[in-house]
């Protein structure tokens, strides 16, 4: 499901877009399992700052990641309007804490541009490509690169 963006096929893809840190991002809709409201997470000791802790997702322990903080943006201040997007990464589920869900985008591969070098490695590492819709710029998150151990950045 997480094909490289520059794949030559003309298949349309659907993406869920959302706001975090006053920027618009999106993830492939196929990786989204559910979207739920914010509930306080149990903090995990000895874990990176962007890991907000774990919550109970119908009996499973779901780790919650503050996407803004992961992208080196200022940490999200969770409010009642905050949203957790539960995405599947391989066999695992991870909840992404974001400010609000905005849209469902239907795009063709040629709408995606490679990420230009903006001198911010952290952002670039997690962004698969840029999508322009009207005058909005939406960055597609490569969810499989977000988890710390998959990235080789174990706490």
């Amino acid at each position: 499901m997480n094909q490289p963006a520059n794949i030559g096929a003309s298949e349309r893809r659907e993406l869920t877009s959302f706001w975090t840190g006053e920027q618009e991002y999106c993830v492939d809709i196929m990786s989204v399992r559910e979207i739920r409201g914010w509930s306080a997470a149990t903090p995990l000791p000895q874990s990176p700052n962007y890991m907000r802790g774990v919550i109970n997702l119908r009996g499973a322990v779901l780790p919650i990641m503050d996407l803004a903080e992961r992208l080196d943006l200022p940490p999200t201040q969770p409010s009642e309007r905050s949203v957790i997007i539960v995405v599947q990464v391989g066999e695992r589920l991870v909840g992404l804490l974001v400010d609000a869900v905005s849209d469902i985008l239907s795009i063709t591969p040629d709408q995606i541009q490679p990420t230009p070098d903006v001198g911010c490695d952290q952002s670039k590492a997690f962004i698969r490509g840029l999508i322009t819709i009207d005058d909005r710029m939406v960055s597609e998150i490569a969810v499989e690169r977000l988890l710390p151990d998959l990235e080789g950045l174990a706490a």
Binding site: L44, P45, M51, V54, L93, V94
Partner: peptide, 9 residues
């Protein structure tokens, strides 16, 4: 199952 081992836990 969804995250990783946490030291002390």
């Amino acid at each position: 199952s969804n995250y990783q081992q946490v030291p002390g836990i």
